[in-house]
């Protein structure tokens, strides 16, 4: 399993990778620091990447735009939004753009377990 973790915050990426490793210890992790990096990694490795975690508020390219670009490149992409932006309109926007689900920051073991048990990813 190859997972692309996208967040401009090192702390947020490390937290997410830590709880992900509890469930998927052998997963290959690719880290991206903004939406553009995530999009470029996805285009290069789309055959390998089975799951993308994407923050929304990021420099260079935000998560909204990155999500749209990734979904335009691969409509089957599995993208999970991890964000502190809990507004219903933000959630509607990303779900409308093809995100599988939205997880409110900060990520936790329980939230990650719920995600994997949901069958969404």
């Amino acid at each position: 399993m190859t997972v692309l973790v996208t967040d401009d915050s090192l702390l947020a990426r490390k937290s997410l990778i830590k709880v992900l490793r509890e469930l998927e210890p052998d997963a290959e992790i690719i880290e991206a620091q903004n939406g553009l990096e995530a999009y470029e990694y996805y285009c290069k490795r789309s055959r390998d990447i089975s799951l993308v975690f994407l923050d929304l508020t990021m420099p260079v390219m935000d998560g909204f735009e990155a999500l749209e670009k990734i979904m335009a490149f691969d409509s089957q992409a599995k993208v999970v939004i991890v964000s502190a932006d809990i507004q219903p309109k933000s959630q509607e926007r990303v779900m409308g753009a093809g995100a599988k689900t939205v997880i409110p920051k900060p990520i936790s073991s329980d939230k990650m377990r719920t995600l994997f048990l949901s069958g969404l990813v």
Partner: peptide
């Protein structure tokens, strides 16, 4: 710096986002 920014992000975005909602 990263820790301060991430805490700010969570606190500010959650508070303002909830207020807006």
């Amino acid at each position: 710096n990263d820790a301060v920014l991430e805490v700010n992000n969570i606190l500010s975005v959650t508070t303002i986002g909830k207020l807006a909602e």
